[in-house]
Design a binder for these strands. Structure first.
Length: 262
DNA sequence: GATGACCTGTGA
DNA sequence: TCACAGGTCATC
């Protein structure tokens, strides 16, 4: 599910409700969910009796800093993860994921000494918990990447523009839907090689990427894009009525307009 | 870079 | 039963 907009909504909930509260108990029932060398035991001892002091986000990655120079807890929502604090969860229900709350889907959580709780619910188990994530794994957040950075990136790549925009090490935060919406709004064919974009293309792409993130963020998530109405097999472009093309690009199902995306 | 793997739920 | 899902990783 979640792209940077959903991660940001989760971050706001964490920022509003999870900071400064003493962690009494850590629930890590699923060892498989704890990644990159960390173990449930390590996470338990790192968090117990500490407090979160900041809730940050890079792209789709959530970062919770601990007090007393403790490690940073990394939370990733994967394809179907949601953060729930004291029973409150952020944002709209997910489009392609279930929104029921089966207790078995709580892959990780903490109980605060005031009685509240924080849970990461993830039916598909593709999310992750880790300690001290290497923050150099990610490029600049899509909301902050500058035009000149983008230009330099594209000039050096023959990858399809869509694949490059979704490469989290280059630009963090754009997923399948946000990328398709951005390219649809810009009028660029997602299969075009990155370096084929002209100076003007890059300028428009940069501007559109930022407005798309802002607009869809206000509307409530990655699924609120204008191209979504044509995102069905055999669908028509909501802008000009031409056919929408459905294909795989960068390994992901991609929709684009045969007429205005060139 | 494209591909398949990871995992599990949903709907046709 | 199958195809598909808003993500990421290892592997050729």
């Amino acid at each position: 599910m979640p792209e940077m907009l959903e991660a940001e909504m989760a971050r706001v909930v964490l920022d509003d409700r999870a900071l400064g509260r003493q962690i009494a108990k850590v629930h890590a029932p699923d060892a498989w969910f704890v990644k990159r060398g960390a173990t449930p035991t390590m996470v338990r001892s790192a968090l117990r009796n500490h407090r979160f002091v900041a809730a940050r986000r890079i792209g789709k990655q959530l970062l919770l800093d601990l007090d007393h120079d403790g490690p940073t807890l990394g939370l990733h929502l994967g394809m179907s993860g949601r953060v729930i604090v004291d029973g409150v969860e952020a944002g709209d229900p997910l489009l392609y994921a279930t929104n029921r709350d089966d207790p078995a889907w709580r892959r990780f959580g903490v109980t605060f000494s005031d009685g509240g709780s924080l849970w990461l619910r993830d039916p598909r188990r593709l999310g992750a918990v880790e300690l001290d994530p290497d923050e150099t794994r990610w490029g600049p957040d899509a909301s902050e990447a500058t035009r000149s950075y983008l230009a330099g990136l594209l000039a050096n790549s023959s990858a399809p523009i869509k694949a490059l925009l979704m490469d989290q090490s280059k630009i963090a935060g754009l997923g399948n839907l946000l990328t398709d919406e951005t390219l649809w709004r810009t009028g660029i064919d997602p299969a075009r090689s990155a370096r084929s974009l002209t100076r003007d293309d890059v300028a428009r792409l940069h501007r559109t990427m930022r407005t798309t993130v802002r607009t869809l963020g206000r509307r409530g998530g990655s699924h609120t894009g204008d191209h979504m109405a044509g995102r069905v097999p055999g669908g028509a472009c909501p802008r000009d009525g031409a056919a929408m093309l459905r294909r795989q690009i960068g390994g992901r199902t991609t929709y684009s307009c045969v007429l205005h995306q060139r």
